[in-house]
Amino acid sequence: MDDVARRLRACELRWNLEGSRGLDGGCRADVFAAGVAGGGGGEVVVKLVNPPTEARAEAAALSAFAQTGAVVRLIDGDFTVGALLLERIRPGTPLPAGNDEEATEVAADLLTKLHRAAVPTSFPFATLAETYPAREAQALTDNAFERRARAEPERGKAGLVRLAAAGSTAMELCAGTDRPVLLHGDFVDKNILRTRDGHLAVDPSPQTGDPHCDIGFFAAYHPPATAILQRAGAIAARMGLDGHRARRWASVWTVHQSCQAWRVDQGALDAALDGGRFDGFL
């Protein structure tokens, strides 16, 4: 029995689950849908967090965000195996591309709610300034992998040559934050799921810091690349926040997206960066 199977079996026994089947969990988790034996509890989701030690932070964030009504409901956690038991969201489809007005509205609504949550003192969340270097290192690792795997030695160059400037901007913005909040930390399309009457956020990568960071992160990820700066400003305006600051964070994360070099629209993303508009925000 491999490690994932062992952890899943422990969850099935602890929470009386049956019929477990895999869902798309990305690279940071193994995720399964399961039924509660006897049918009395409906269907739930088991998330095996990777690495397992990060389950506590995610659980603490979901608990803090629970009062906002903007995140998936955490039912229970088993930190001995790094597992979270979550409510199943239906239909659970991610926020689609192609409608920037809807995306802006949904993002602003959820982030406004999330950022109202009090930062709990019961868990030692890392700060954005503390976590940023790891994100920068990951961008470099991803760049090397994509170049090697695709045999494209110049792929992601537009982001790579601006990565140092993005880092300096990020540290400046972190130092100038006057109202740190509990950030979602991975607020992108795939982590914004449709419910029967709206949307909920899932899979936080929590840290504390500048609320404009979450705006910029979403704006940089959501296509098309040609609308990143406009999108960041529009979300900030809906939230009553600083549009210039949101655009600066969007520029930081656009550099990371380009450097990571995995996107389907890589050419458009790199062209947008090389167009010069982002450089003025770095």
Rank of each mutant, 00 (worst) to 15 (best):
R90F: 11
N191L: 13
W15F: 01
E54H: 15
D274Q: 13
E154A: 11
P94Y: 05
R277C: 01
V188K: 13
A10W: 02
A151W: 05
V188A: 14
F278R: 10
A236S: 11
T177Q: 00
A107W: 06
L193D: 07
A64Y: 04
G82T: 00
P96K: 04
D186F: 13
A61C: 07
R147N: 08
R194M: 07
R73N: 05
G240H: 02
G275M: 10
C259M: 06
F145H: 09
G198F: 08
H199C: 09
N143C: 09
D100G: 14
P223C: 13
E58M: 14
V252A: 01
R155C: 00
C174N: 07
T177M: 00
A64S: 12
G77R: 06
G19N: 11
N16D: 03
R6K: 08
Q260L: 06
L23C: 02
A134W: 07
F123M: 06
Q260T: 11
L23M: 11
N16L: 00
G98H: 04
T141S: 12
C27P: 07
E58H: 09
D274G: 05
Y132P: 00
A170S: 12
A97R: 14
T226A: 15
R248S: 14
A246V: 03
F218L: 07
G38F: 01
H256K: 03
A250L: 08
A166W: 09
E87G: 01
H199S: 12
R7F: 07
L8M: 03
P206K: 14
P224W: 08
R150I: 00
C11H: 05
A272N: 05
L182N: 12
E101L: 15
A250Y: 10
D197I: 06
D178E: 15
L193G: 10
A118P: 01
R9N: 04
V161D: 14
E18L: 02
R28S: 15
E87W: 10
L48C: 13
R150P: 04
R6A: 10
G82I: 03
E130C: 09
S63N: 11
K113C: 02
L173W: 03
R73S: 15
T127R: 10
C213M: 06
W253M: 13
A66R: 15
G41S: 08
L183F: 07
E87T: 09
P180Y: 01
N16Y: 00
L229Q: 00
G82K: 11
F145E: 09
V106F: 02
T195S: 11
A70P: 04
M171T: 13
T177A: 11
A166E: 08
C259F: 03
P52L: 03
R88H: 06
T226I: 11
M239Y: 01
P211M: 02
A220P: 01
A64K: 08
D78Y: 01
R150G: 00
A126P: 07
F123I: 06
H244R: 14
L273F: 04
R7N: 03
A29D: 09
A34V: 02
G243Q: 06
A83S: 08
L241A: 06
